[in-house]
Amino acid sequence: MNNRTYYNEILTEHNADPLHKHMIANPSKMLRGVNPSCGDDITLLINTDENGMITEGSYVGDGCAISQASADIMIDMIIGKSVDEALKLKDKFIKMIHGEASEEEIESLEEASALRDISHMPSRVKCAVLSWHTLEEMYKDK
């Protein structure tokens, strides 16, 4: 097998051994996101405190490794951040997936930068952005 593959270790670890794939009791927000064409299906669960800080987060669902790892990495990054900061990360992530982010922006995405090569795989873009778009939907009235 050659190594021309986009499945790096960060991605496969978050997929095979997710940190945040479980339910949480009484989330303050819960939203399902689906890619009908390929069947990726995740539900995000988020808890925030009175100051708008994300105190708890998780997801459940099924889908390809890219959609699942992307969700796991996202949750890991946004816990402990404010919703505003989380939405800023979302903007950067989507920019990266569309191949428009600077090196600096990509670096600031930490583990999520492991998905940067998806920008060369048009057919998998929607898998990578599903959880981030769901997060955006969740707070669109904010």
């Binding site: 097998m1 050659n2 021309r4 593959t5 986009y6 499945y7 095979a16 390929c38 099924d62 889908g63 390809c64 490794a65 890219i66 795989m121 998998r124 898998c127």
Partner: peptide, 15 residues
Amino acid sequence: DNVHPHDVSQILADN
């Protein structure tokens, strides 16, 4: 088991 068909075909395509 535990590998989504889209990942299977993607890895095959990468090869």
